[in-house]
Amino acid sequence: MLDFMENVPVIPLAEGVSWLTDRITEIFSFIFEPIQNQFGAFMEWTSGQLASIPPIIVILLVVIGAFFASGKKFGLAAFSLVGLLLIYNQESWEQLMSTFTLVLISSLLCVIIGVPIGILMSKSRIAQAIITPILDFMQTMPAFVYLIPAVAFFSIGMVPGVFASLVFATPPTVRFTNLGIRQVSEELIEASESFGSTGSQKLFKVEMPMAKQTIMAGINQTVMLALSMVVIASMIGAPGLGRDVLSSLQRAEVGTGFVAGLGIVILAIIIDRFTQSLNK
């Protein structure tokens, strides 16, 4: 049936992408290298600082924070206390700090990049038409695929991990920001305009506050996705709990893998509840 295709040579798509990646690596190495060095050093330093705080202080702060964040209820506080003590007991504290650094930095960058793009999308139909398919692409392409250019650009370690997380975890923040702003009722927009708001007054005094809940839901999703990248990022040398999961996978050690995985779950639940409580 597809006989006519016999005459069409294979389009060198893979070669093309490889060539493009090589060129980008070459041309932008003057940007990538300092990023890799400076930013890498900064992340190492951050996780070092976090790890150097006595664990008991960190745990206490988290527990107190959890108590107030959850509206003075004991559930989350108790869970945080037991969960973090368990991780400490399993001698995974340092890995936990590395993982947390990776998630924190990735998420912050996602928000810093994602919210303005979301705002742009909500304001311009053209921007929305262009950005939406890019977001679809970013979210559906298997996350492993990002690892390859990540390594090409930034070598191995935390920095390419952050890069891969960025690609993977930014879309929800962008989408929810766009959605939240578009959902603000027409009459409120009219009200703000009828009193003579400028564009930025409208954005910051009406649209953003009204969209806040939706945007926060998007950020929560972003943080969770960033966390889910932890294991994948460990394949390119990002330290942390993910690396323990990966190495136990390679050695077929069920127990060690489970413990490291459990650490990730505990971290995920604590972060999730914290970001959700910001939404109230």
Partner: peptide, 17 residues
């Protein structure tokens, strides 16, 4: 709009936040 005209809306259009 700022100085000479103000509008009152059917569904009030108050800012809930």
């Amino acid at each position: 709009r700022r100085e000479k005209m103000s509008m009152v809306f059917q569904r009030f259009a108050l800012f809930p936040h």
